[in-house]
Simulated assay, not measured.
Amino acid sequence: MSRPNQARLDLAALRHNADLVRELAPNANRMAVVKANAYGHGAVTMARELEGRTDAMAVACLEEALELRESGIASPILLLEGVFEPDELKIAAEQQIWVTVDNAVQLEWLENARLSAPLQCWLKVDTGMHRLGAEAGQVAAFFQRLVDCPNSVGTPVLSTHFASADEIERDTTTRQLALFEQLTGDFRALRSAANSPGVLAWPASHYDWVRPGYMLWGNSPFGTAEQANAARLRPVMTLCSAVISVRDVAAGECVGYGGSWRAERPSRIATVTIGYGDGYPRTASNGTPVLVNGQRAPLAGRVSMDMITVDVTDLDPVQIGDPVILWGDGLPVAEVAEPAGTIGYELLTRMPPRTPRVVVTA
């Protein structure tokens, strides 16, 4: 018998979340961001389910795009960071992959390339993230060069990326949108700005293309903060395991490596076969919530490579084999990430191959 650890993938939840994108941005084209192995969910499985429900997909690099093409995904695929060397443009042309142009070097590579077919290009505009994108004084010239470039087909799409759209109370996104309007409003071109928090909370950012990623997997980009549209999302991944041992621990006794948890009363401790080798964060602190038989219980002791221990003293009797949910259905990943000092994005994308992905809903 294998260990009971699974990352269960609910495709009905994925379809629900994709439909929510359509509802919130009905006039925009939808680009599903499936980079980083679809945020740890399995890029091919997720892309196959999303094909036909979205208008295009996006990845970080050519290798991710080719994995989708080789699996039969025919949708347009955008390289969000563009190409990293000029020879990649030839492959992109052969595979009909769209490219982002971010800087003068990438633009020169495109202008000097000898391609089998012209490429659909997106021009990234830096509106304050200061990570990628043409600077304000470059936008007009770069746009015209793409229009004039025989290796660029049609009119380039103008895009930008938000620095803090997940922080609704800040004015950063408002200022970025204003600058984006200033820099691109005179061009007759399609535009794109909205990532997941943009789709959920910033309707003015929807423009012609929206680029949902994290929200497709049913997780709120606002963390544990309440947001009405994010509350409608359904988690696609449920990380689950089972109890493999139950024992009584006397008051004053310690549990786990380093004795970081001490029983303040006679306690009942359940051992669960999951650990940082399976994608559960080692930095999760005492008290991090775990669902045992659907009941919340606190983590008790340091996370090991293959096991955790949970205080089930206040729960209905727990037995070996009882189901455990680490995050997902009934327990948002943000509630685990926060006491672990990280974000749900990291927990999902770091899910290792050791933990099998299992589709549970057709």
Rank of each mutant, 00 (worst) to 15 (best):
L20V: 03
E181V: 01
V83M: 04
S267F: 03
M46G: 07
P76Y: 05
V236K: 07
P356R: 06
L239E: 02
L177E: 07
A7R: 09
G279E: 06
D87T: 10
T238F: 10
R114L: 03
T160P: 04
A104F: 08
G301A: 07
D329G: 04
T361F: 03
V336S: 06
V358R: 15
D19G: 12
Q319N: 14
V147D: 00
A250R: 13
F180R: 08
A43P: 07
A230N: 13
E70L: 09
E338P: 07
V310M: 04
A65Q: 03
A163N: 13
A251M: 11
T45Y: 04
D278S: 07
M1N: 13
M1C: 11
G259T: 01
A36R: 09
Q319D: 14
V358G: 08
I168R: 14
D316R: 14
A7M: 07
N5K: 09
G328N: 03
V360M: 09
M31G: 00
Q182R: 15
G223M: 03
T283C: 08
I343F: 05
E181P: 11
G128W: 06
W209G: 08
P156G: 02
I269G: 10
S285P: 00
A204R: 14
L68Q: 10
K124A: 04
P86D: 07
D311H: 07
R232S: 05
L9P: 05
M129Y: 12
R15D: 15
V105K: 15
L315N: 12
R268W: 01
Y257S: 14
P289L: 12
F180T: 06
Y276G: 09
T224R: 05
T224H: 02
E51C: 09
P4Y: 07
G279H: 05
Y276K: 09
L20T: 05
W202P: 07
D166P: 07
M237C: 15
N103V: 04
H206V: 03
I97P: 12
V290T: 12
L216K: 04
Q144L: 00
V210R: 05
E63K: 10
Y276S: 14
T361Q: 15
T173H: 02
A74I: 00
V336P: 05
E88F: 02
M215Q: 15
V358S: 10
G82S: 08
N219V: 05
